[in-house]
C-alpha cells in the first residue's frame, strides 16, 4: 500500500515536472502556430454555446473544418426555403470555426445581399416601399458581413474585390468601392483591371474627380492596353467636368482607337 502511494507520487511528480519543463516551449509554439494561421483556437465558451455538445466535441477532437463544412451544407436547405435567419445562424457557426475561409465569407454575404434582398420582393405581406426598405436592410447586412471578413483577412484580394463590386452594384457607393479597389491594389495577386476600376470609381465619387482624372491620365499614358472605351468616356467627361483647358486635354480621346474597337467592339468595361 505504502509502495503504491509512493509510486503514484513519483508518477505525478514526474508528470508535473515534465509539464513545467515543456509548457514554455509548448506555449511559445502554440502562439506561433496561431500567428501563422496553422492553428485556430476558438474561444471554448463561444463554441460550446453556439455549437451544442456533439459538434463542440467533434471540433475539439480536431474536426473543425468538417464541422464548418457540415454547417455550410446544412444552410443550403435554408436557402431553398428562404429562411434567411436560419441560414445566417449556420454561416455564423461556420465563420466562427473557419474564419479564414474566404469563399465561405463571400458566399455567406452573397446569400444575404443578393438572394435575401431579392426574395423580399416575393413577400406579398409587404407594401412596395416596405420591400425596398427590407431589401436595403439585407444589402447592408451583406456588406457588413464582407467588412467583417475583410477585418479577419485584410490581405485577401478576393474579399476586397468582392466588397468593391457589392458596394458598387448594390449600394452604388462608389467612394467605398474606390477605397476597396485601392486596398486591393496594395495586395498581391489583384487583377490587371483593378487599377482602372479604381479610377472609374473615383470618377463617380463626388469631390474626388481631380484625383480620378490624374489617375486615369497616368494610366492612359502608361500603357496602350488601358485605352478602353470606358476610360475614353470617363476621361472625356472628367475633362469637361473639371474644365480642363483645351490645350491641356489628352489628345485623341474622341477618335476611336481602331485596333482596339475591332477587338472589343466598344463594349464598356463597367457593367
Amino acid at each position: 500500500m505504502k509502495q503504491l502511494l509512493k509510486k503514484a507520487g513519483l508518477v505525478i511528480a514526474i508528470l508535473m515536472a515534465g509539464g513545467l519543463l515543456r509548457s514554455p516551449l509548448e506555449n511559445r509554439l502554440e502562439t506561433r502556430l496561431v500567428e501563422t494561421h496553422l492553428l485556430f483556437t476558438p474561444p471554448a465558451k463561444n463554441v460550446l454555446d453556439v455549437l451544442g455538445q456533439e459538434s463542440a466535441m467533434a471540433v475539439l477532437g480536431g474536426m473543425r473544418s468538417v464541422v464548418a463544412l457540415y454547417w455550410q451544407l446544412m444552410a443550403i436547405s435554408d436557402w431553398e426555403y428562404q429562411e434567411w435567419d436560419d441560414l445566417a445562424k449556420k454561416f455564423e457557426i461556420a465563420a466562427l470555426l473557419t474564419p479564414r475561409d474566404t469563399d465561405m465569407w463571400i458566399k455567406y454575404a452573397w446569400h444575404i445581399h443578393t438572394n435575401a434582398s431579392a426574395s423580399v420582393f416575393d413577400d406579398a405581406s409587404m407594401t412596395e416601399p416596405q420591400q425596398y426598405l427590407a431589401a436595403d436592410d439585407y444589402i447592408e447586412q451583406g456588406i457588413g458581413i464582407l467588412y467583417r471578413a475583410v477585418k479577419q483577412m485584410p490581405d485577401s484580394v478576393d474579399l476586397q474585390m468582392d466588397l468593391a463590386q457589392v458596394l458598387r452594384e448594390k449600394r452604388q457607393d462608389y467612394c467605398g468601392a474606390a477605397e476597396a479597389y485601392k486596398r486591393a491594389l496594395e495586395l498581391e495577386g489583384h487583377p490587371a483591371y483593378t487599377t482602372r476600376f479604381y479610377g472609374y470609381m473615383l470618377a463617380k465619387c463626388p469631390g474626388r474627380e481631380r484625383e480620378a482624372y490624374e489617375h486615369l491620365k497616368m494610366l492612359w499614358f502608361e500603357d496602350e492596353k488601358h485605352h478602353m472605351p470606358s476610360m475614353r468616356r470617363d476621361l472625356a467627361d472628367l475633362e469637361v467636368k473639371l474644365n480642363v483647358p483645351e490645350a491641356l486635354r489628352i489628345p485623341g480621346l474622341e477618335n476611336q482607337d481602331e485596333r482596339f474597337s475591332r477587338q472589343r467592339s466598344g463594349q464598356p468595361e463597367v457593367p
Binding site: M16, G19, L29, E30, T36, L38, L39, G62, S65
Partner: peptide, 26 residues
C-alpha cells in the same frame, strides 16, 4: 494543464488543409 498533453497543438492539420504556408521549423 501540466499533466495532460495539449492535443490542440496537433490541430494544425486544419491550417495545413486550408493551404496556409507551413513553417518547417514549427
Amino acid at each position: 494543464v501540466l499533466a495532460v498533453p495539449n492535443f490542440a497543438l496537433f490541430n494544425v492539420v486544419d491550417g495545413i488543409a486550408a493551404a496556409e504556408p507551413v513553417d518547417p521549423m514549427l
